[in-house]
Amino acid sequence: MPSYAVPALDKGLDILELLADRNDGLSQAQIAAETGRSVGEIFRVLQTLERRGYLVRDPASGLYTVSLMIFELAHRHPPLRGLVQAALGPMRRLSTASGQTCNLSVLDARRVLVIAQVESPGPFGFQVRVGAEFPVESTTTGAVLLAWAGADLQRAYLEDLAAREPAVADRFAAEVASVAAAGYARESGRRLVGIVDIVFPITGTEGFPAAALTVPCAATTDPVVDLDAIVELARDTADEISGMLRPLR
């Protein structure tokens, strides 16, 4: 099949992919330099993306950042919308019973994407922004997602990681195997000292992205956090969500 290039579309996608990986904004000149194009080539593309709501331009600095438009579009997709709708009720009950924040994530290409969160009802709780993305190998949630993502996807991801970072791939492959054997993950201080991540897979999700329920427990002494009890609450909640998804296959 012949390949038909659409230059303007290529420019727009290059810009979105570039800015999606940046926490800070970029100027028009910086975007041009990073994408290997001239300012004149990208000027109208930037204007169109801003007008359509995909980019936001700070009026003071002139820096462009990605809006939440793409995230909102993803949530209109029926499988993802159905997953969130099924999960929110059980997640609210889990948060109330545990006194902790909990979140729901999916595997999105090479990233862990947080798609829903229920905040802690108490004075303490670790929150992750809905829409936040993390490299799969950098989180406990990523290990659980990959462990239940299917053999083909798991192999492809680990092979790609090995080509880029062999030592990291070896460690992560061992972690994925350990998580799969245990049926869940419980790890302290992976990304932040004082936080224990308890993560269970959401199973029975054919037609849905691979998903995981995470409870990032903030350790406090008043009251003392009972991690074993939270593990059981999270297990029951993941089972409940999984059971709600199976009839939707």
Rank of each mutant, 00 (worst) to 15 (best):
S27M: 08
Q28S: 07
A29W: 05
Q30Y: 00
I31H: 06
I31K: 05
I31L: 07
A32P: 13
A32F: 15
A33I: 04
A33Y: 02
A33V: 06
E34K: 07
E34P: 07
E34Y: 08
T35R: 01
G36Y: 10
G36Q: 06
R37P: 09
R37Q: 12
R37G: 03
S38G: 12
S38V: 00
S38P: 03
V39L: 06
V39T: 15
V39A: 08
E41Q: 15
E41I: 02
E41F: 02
E41R: 11
E41D: 14
I42G: 02
I42Y: 01
I42L: 00
I42Q: 01
I42E: 05
F43K: 15
F43E: 11
R44N: 10
R44H: 14
R44Q: 07
V45R: 00
L46P: 07
L46G: 08
L46W: 03
L46D: 03
Q47F: 00
T48M: 12
L49C: 05
L49G: 12
L49Y: 06
L49H: 08
L49E: 11
L49P: 06
E50K: 15
E50F: 03
R51G: 04
R52T: 15
R52S: 14
R52E: 14
R52Y: 13
G53V: 08
G53E: 12
G53K: 02
G53Q: 10
Y54C: 05
Y54W: 13
L55C: 07
V56F: 12
V56Q: 13
V56H: 08
R57F: 07
D58I: 12
D58W: 06
D58L: 04
P59L: 11
P59Q: 13
P59F: 08
A60Q: 14
S61C: 09
S61W: 06
S61N: 13
G62S: 01
G62C: 08
G62P: 09
G62K: 02
G62H: 01
G62M: 00
G62A: 06
L63S: 00
L63Y: 02
L63I: 02
L63G: 00
Y64P: 00
Y64H: 07
Y64Q: 01
T65W: 03
V66E: 12
V66G: 00
S67N: 11
S67I: 02
S67F: 10
L68E: 12
L68T: 10
L68S: 09
M69E: 12
M69D: 11
I70T: 10
E72Q: 14
L73E: 10
L73M: 12
A74D: 08
H75W: 01
H75K: 11
H75Y: 00
R76P: 05
R76T: 11
R76I: 04
H77M: 10
H77Y: 15
P78T: 04
P79T: 04
L80W: 02
L80T: 12
R81F: 04
R81Y: 04
R81W: 06
